[in-house]
Structure formats: structure tokens, C-alpha cells
Nucleic acid binder design. Structure first.
Length: 419
RNA sequence: GGGGGAAUGUCCCGAGCGGCAAAGGGGGCGGACUGUAAAUCCGCUGGCUAUGCCUUCGCAGGUUCGAGUCCUGCUUCCCCCA
């Protein structure tokens, strides 16, 4: 980032101040467009899964700030590119998604965007096109003639991502080599359709975005711009968005609100300030105050981070409920009825069910073998009492207030209720 | 087309004289310590109706009391020559 540059637009001021920016092709240019209220920007999203996860949140937030500062955000669904399958994840035979799957994923993903952006027909309202709209209509010969001639292979070969692969003798498939052409074409097409001037994305997208700018110029678009965000890792170097249980999904049906809240609550100390800036709307003054908290006090900042981030996605009411459940569970050690509950046939419980199987049944551990191991290391508890006998049975006698509380480790609790 | 390598515990990397549920890492999980953090230390890291049974080393056959290990064929990937 150019050290001397001082933005005049709200958009760049916010992004710079909050740490969203890694590189920008032309700060002054973007700044001027934003200042004039003419900035329309897009970010591409895969629709390989029915939900985005935390890893995409920085991108979503950039679109959100764009809208809040007077620009028009364009989240682009990669419905067309998804059909090809992104080859850069080098694990070979990635399954091809059916068109129905892709369509379903798009619908599901759009729900998330509507939490962060306002869609509509207005000047700053977001629109969500799908690159399948133009990519699938392409004819190979026409594409080569109209678009392909603008790509310089010499130039493509000189790009870092390509150069690296060639130097290491790693295979670079033709389809992968073409992927950037399709993405570049998206940019040109979005300019044509929406007057989109800026493409944003993660820092790994820089090369692809710049290729798009280049193509735009050759195809007669005005100057286009690139802006990338830093690749996010936690302070200890782990990738964001992955936990033991899998990805931190944004859709509530794939990750319960409580778990989402917990994800943020468990942020490392060193990340609190950075995350508050990136993942909440809190004013900077407030954030500066929170990140100055030291020692155990920083837990207050983490709770605020969790509640704010959750509220943005799932609504304030749900966020408060998650916060309250956590408070009861951790600070009062009391049984909160809002913990996830799994039902069991009343008769089954009356007959007695093995502890190990009970833990497997509610999904806290994957197998009885794992349950057995956890008993040995003291990781399982029933009604807060450590399980020491793996042969123990759970019966109606274990019901406390109509349920049995099963805990795995300190943080994972599930209630077992007879039905 | 010719020659030479490689594929191992369904997260990854990676050892493996014919007796192997298979060394060692990383990652992950649990425990201790804390603050629901980090760091550190300890334990665990195929499945089950479990003093036993079943399934794992690219795929399919074969040799053998016994195969990840030896043989044959196949698949995929890499390297060298053409």
C-alpha cells in the first residue's frame, strides 16, 4: 500500500483504516470514483457448496462497506465457472456439480448476502448476477476471435502463479490456464452490463484481476481497477474458517448460531482487534478501546466481537440468545435449556442405554471407539460428572429436569431428552 | 513409442528384512495449567454387539502356513530418451 496516499473517499478511508487492503492497482483512481459516488465493484464467489464460510467474510464485508459508503456492490455467482470446476485446488477428481445443485447452492448463498447487503433496483442496491448467464452462451470460436486474441500468452506466462508452477515443474493444465481468461472475461462483461469498474478479492486473486483489467482495456472499456484483501490467518498461523468440526459455515442450517458465536468467542487474544475491525461495524473509537483491554479483560472484547459478528449474520436477537446461553453454561455452570437438544425414544432410555452409545447417538463423538478413548482421558461428562466407567448405563434415573446433559470436553454440550 | 520411478493408516507428509492394526512427524481431539485465549506439558489419533471379531497400504489376480512387503496384469502420476 502506498505509504503517502491519503484517501478522500469514505470507502477507501474505511477500508484502509480497518485493514481490508493488501494491494490496489490505483489508489487515486479508485478514490476519485468512490468520492464521486460512481464506484461499482464486484467480487466473485464460488457456488460449490450450499453455504459460504467464514473465509469469504472479508470479501462480503468489503461489499458491505462499499454499499454503506455510497457504492454499488455486485456479488458475482460463479455458476458458470463452477461447472468447469476450479482446477487450482490440485486434488484431482473434484466431483462435478449438477446444474440443479448449482442452482440450489446459489439460492442458499444468496440468503446470506441479503443479510449483509441491500438488493434492489436502486443506484446503490446490490445485484447478484451469475457468470453462467454469459459464459455458457459462449461459442469457442467466437470466444477465441473476440476475446482470446487479446490475451498475450507471453504475459500470462510471466505471471507469478504460472511462473511458479513452471519453475517447479508442476503441471498446469490447459483448463487452469484458461480459468483466468474466463475470469478476466467476467470483468469485461460486468463492465458492459453494469458499468462495473473495480474487482476486489483475496490477495491470491491479484493476477486474475489484473488480467481482467488488461482485457478490459483491450476490449475498449475505460480504466478498470483491482483491489485485494490480505489473506487471513489467525495469529498462530492457522487458516481462518476451519475448525475441528469442519468449515465455519455462514448458513444457520449448516452451523448453529450458538456455534457461530462460539467460533468468534474463541478468538485468540492477538486477533481480537484485527477481527473487530474486519468483522464488525463497530466504530473505530470503540474498537480501539476494546483492543486495549489486557489480560482476562480481553474476554469482554471477545464477547462483544462474538455478539456483533453473530448479530450481523443471524440477527441481534439470536446473537443475544447465544451470548446468554454461553454465559449460563460457562459462567454459572448452569444448565441452559437453549443448548442443542437431541431426542431419544422414552422406552429406549427406560431400558437403559450405554454411555458410549449415548455420546455417539447425539453426535458428540464419531464412534464408540473414540468415546472409549475419551473416557480414558476424562473427556466425557454426564450431568457434569466425569464418566469413569465405560460400561455405565444411562436410565431415567439420570434425568435432571427432564433431560440429561452430555458434555464432550469443556465446550461441547448436548441435552438428551426422552420423547 | 522406449527406459526409470512412485502410489501406505479415507486430513496431510512419511518409514516400512515375508509375521503388521503398520515407525515418525504435522494437523486434530481430550486432559493439566489458565481467562472458553496463546504458550507449555501429558495422553489419544481404524471399526464393532470387544479378554474376541472385522476392515485397512492404488486396482485385480497369483506364490506362501502367512503379503504393505515377492510375482503377473491393469490404473493414475512423475522423470529421462524419442
Amino acid at each position: 500500500m502506498s505509504a503517502s496516499f491519503v484517501p478522500k473517499s469514505d470507502f477507501l478511508s474505511v477500508l484502509m483504516e480497518r485493514g481490508y487492503i493488501h494491494q490496489c492497482s490505483d489508489f487515486e483512481g479508485v478514490d476519485a470514483k468512490a468520492k464521486a459516488g460512481e464506484l461499482i465493484a464486484y467480487i466473485g464467489f464460488d457456488c460449490t457448496a450450499s453455504s459460504l464460510h467464514v473465509g469469504s467474510l472479508v470479501q462480503i464485508m468489503m461489499l458491505r462497506w462499499l454499499q454503506k459508503t455510497g457504492g454499488k456492490p455486485v456479488p458475482l455467482m460463479g455458476g458458470g465457472t463452477t461447472r468447469v470446476g476450479d482446477p487450482s485446488g490440485k486434488d484431482e477428481s473434484r466431483r462435478m456439480l449438477s446444474l440443479d445443485d448449482i442452482e440450489a447452492n446459489k439460492t442458499s448463498i444468496k440468503q446470506v448476502f441479503s443479510k449483509f447487503l441491500t438488493f434492489g433496483e436502486g443506484r446503490t442496491d446490490a445485484v447478484m448476477p451469475d457468470n453462467a448467464e454469459w459464459l455458457t452462451a459462449l461459442n469457442y470460436i467466437d470466444f477465441l476471435r473476440d476475446v482470446g486474441r487479446h490475451f498475450s500468452v507471453n504475459r500470462m506466462l510471466s505471471m507469478d502463479s504460472v511462473k511458479m508452477r513452471l519453475e517447479r515443474d508442476q503441471e498446469l493444465s490447459f483448463i487452469e490456464f484458461n480459468y483466468m481468461c474466463l475470469q478476466a472475461y467476467d470483468f469485461a462483461e460486468l463492465y458492459r452490463r453494469y458499468g462495473c469498474l473495480l474487482q476486489m478479492g483475496g490477495s491470491d486473486q491479484w493476477g486474475n484481476i489484473v488480467t481482467g483489467i488488461d482485457l478490459g482495456r483491450r476490449m475498449g472499456a475505460p480504466q478498470l481497477y483491482a483491489l485485494t484483501s490480505p489473506l487471513l490467518t489467525t495469529a498462530s498461523g492457522a487458516k481462518m474458517g476451519k475448525t475441528a468440526a469442519g468449515a465455519v459455515w455462514l448458513n444457520a442450517d449448516m452451523l448453529p448460531v450458538y456455534d457461530y458465536w462460539q467460533y468468534w468467542r474463541n478468538t485468540e487474544d492477538a486477533d481480537v482487534g484485527r477481527f473487530l475491525k474486519l468483522f464488525t461495524d463497530l466504530p473505530m473509537d470503540e474498537i480501539r478501546r476494546l483492543e486495549a483491554l489486557a489480560g482476562a479483560e480481553i474476554n469482554e472484547a471477545k464477547k462483544i466481537l462474538a455478539t456483533e459478528a453473530t448479530a450481523m449474520l443471524h440477527g441481534r436477537e439470536q446473537a443475544m440468545a447465544a451470548s446468554e446461553t454461553a454465559r449460563k453454561t460457562f459462567e454459572e455452570g448452569e444448565l441452559a435449556t437453549s443448548l442443542p437438544t437431541v431426542e431419544i425414544a422414552a422406552g429406549e432410555l427406560a431400558d437403559g442405554i450405554g454411555v458410549l452409545n449415548a455420546f455417539v447417538k447425539v453426535g458428540l463423538v464419531p464412534s464408540t471407539g473414540e468415546a472409549r478413548r475419551q473416557v480414558k482421558s476424562g473427556g466425557l461428562r454426564v450431568n457434569d460428572a466425569v464418566v469413569s466407567d465405560e460400561r455405565a448405563q444411562l436410565t431415567n434415573a439420570d434425568l435432571t429436569g427432564g433431560v440429561i446433559k452430555l458434555s464432550f470436553g469443556k465446550k461441547k454440550h448436548i441435552l438428551l431428552a426422552p420423547r
